[in-house]
Amino acid sequence: MRTLLFGRNPKWTLIRIAVLVTVCGLVFGFVLLPIRITGISMLPAYPNGSLNLVNRLAYLRHEPQRGDVVSIQLTGPHVLFMKRIIGLPGETVAFVDGRVLINGKILKEPYEENLACDWNSPPVTLAGDEYYFVGDNRSMPPEDHEHGVKKRIYIVGKVLL
């Protein structure tokens, strides 16, 4: 029983456990943030109740790209929004009959092809540190769907899966 619990060499078992705990602590404390998705704004790709990970180091070497699904911080780390980036700094973003216009040109969004959307919103020009975020489920009314402009510093990381 003792061999089964602690292995043939208890000293090495303890070292292995300590290394595992340290690595898990470092990875899940500083690199990969586990999240549980609540809500329907990212359907169909990210269903309500599913689990995911946020890579906090994703934007160390490059800036966020259009189409990236990211987590956005509110006042702290316990509640985050999960949205897709559609507008980059300096661009003008508008919704016309459900289509996204970037600088007046229609944005191709393969993840949106099967969803009906009739949103309309006036053009918004983004500042040098601002991005435009929106969820994938645009079949819901725009007033029920949190979306819009937020500064780069609020992006926590890129959703991994």
């Binding site: 509110l74 006042t75 702290g76 780390p77 316990h78 509640v79």
Partner: peptide, 22 residues
């Protein structure tokens, strides 16, 4: 109320609290 950030005024007689309500 989660992620409560309290900022006290220098005279410690007033404060601002930014938070997220679930």
């Amino acid at each position: 109320f989660v992620d409560v950030v309290v900022t006290l005024a220098p005279d410690q007689q007033s404060a601002v609290a930014d938070l997220t309500a679930r």
